[in-house]
Design a protein around this nucleic acid. Structure first.
Lengths: 210, 210
DNA sequence: AATAACACGTGAAAAAGATAACAGTGCTAC
DNA sequence: GTAGCACTGTTATCTTTTTCACGTGTTATT
């Protein structure tokens, strides 16, 4: 039972490690990863414990092995499809961002009400009409969805997603979604984040951890 | 010295209260606000302590007064300008989102390298050429900035922002920024959030707090 | 060969954050 | 009136998360 934040950091470590690997780095120590991630060495070591991977005090962590170990812990056994609902500016930004990224987590279907978008392929992702939400999700066994519709529509979409068997929602709409406790919701609230930044920028407070 | 998360929740309460006010609600109790925010009544009461506002056991909290009190605590004494760097899909989505929202926190200037965007007004916000970053920020006393440029450019932009006197950064680029400790950075990492959702969707874990 | 220097994993202490408990207050209903 | 209730502000307790500190094993150095 790893800490909630710990899960987030593991994902962060992975993205850092991927970049390091591309730059030809083959191994590193906890304090190096910590410095790149904005964490402490102890925290890195503790986070990595849950993955079961154990590094060498001499060579540190092997980047490839560590990546594999984090992947085994974090990812589903097979590649998982994600649905995105709401192909506005934000939705398209996310679609663009994810094209050709994580092989284990790909946006498989998008949905929108706008007839001009429906049935077109945007950033390599097919945009379906909103009516087909349930049928497509069930057919493709999608369990994770991203909500990027206006606030007013978000709850309705969330309800439909849950009925279609979705178990996790990444919600960009600025409302709290009411879902069954068995469905995990993560909110990304830009207003909140910006107000937080504004607040702390005034307090002269130091940079935040992860 | 309120909790870090507490600041975020105050912002959330405010957005909920604003909506309630529009719907004609004039007062409410801690448990009602808690339910809307996905928190516990104790947590709401505790969070509100820092604002100094005190409600009545009979009538609960007056929505208007509470909003004012949260505003006094959270906002700068005068309306504050925000800069946005990077007018891609994501940047435009954020600009659209903030047009005519918080009067106390408005996006005042945008920046991009693309000559097609420069000097145009997008969602009511003037887009400046990237070269003018420092001069515009200094001239307009901007202390808060949003980074929505590609990862590779983010650190450079952050450095320039800091030199121009920015004290808080909301960073959407998937890299950790290295800044002086006096600058507050909040990261919005979509990949991380999505991987977290995917992980917990598999664990059948219950919905998260705030 | 002995020892100093490191960095690992992990249990224990400390800090932060959330929840529960309680005293106080004003209304309502007898 | 006064007992009961429903809520508040705040203190106390409990849980989660982070940091510290130590034992271990390996290499480099005297």
């Amino acid at each position: 039972m790893p800490s909630h934040k710990s899960i987030g950091r593991l994902s962060l470590y992975r993205s850092i490690l991927n970049r390091l690997l591309r730059d030809g780095v083959n191994s590193l120590f906890s304090h190096e990863l910590a410095s790149l991630a904005g964490a402490t060495p102890s925290q890195v070591r503790r986070d990595l414990m849950v993955t079961g991977y154990t590094g060498s005090p001499v060579r540190g962590y092997d980047v490839r092995d560590l990546l594999a170990s984090i992947g085994r812990f974090l990812d589903a056994p097979e590649s998982e499809g994600v649905a995105l609902v709401g192909v506005g500016n934000l939705g398209r930004a996310i679609m663009a961002f994810f094209t050709g990224r994580r092989p284990s987590l790909t946006i498989q279907a998008a949905f929108d009400r706008d007839p001009y978008k429906v049935n077109r392929v945007i950033h390599g992702i097919r945009c379906h009409p909103m009516e087909d939400l349930e049928s497509v999700l069930v057919r493709e066994h999608v369990r994770v969805a991203i909500i990027t519709v206006p606030a007013i529509e978000a709850q309705d979409i969330a309800d439909r997603l849950c009925r279609a068997g979705v178990k996790g929602i990444l919600n960009f709409a600025p409302v709290r979604l009411r879902v069954l406790p068995s469905v995990f919701v993560e909110d990304v609230d830009v207003t909140m984040s910006l107000e937080k930044v504004a607040y702390y920028s005034r307090q002269g407070n130091r940079a935040e951890g992860i």
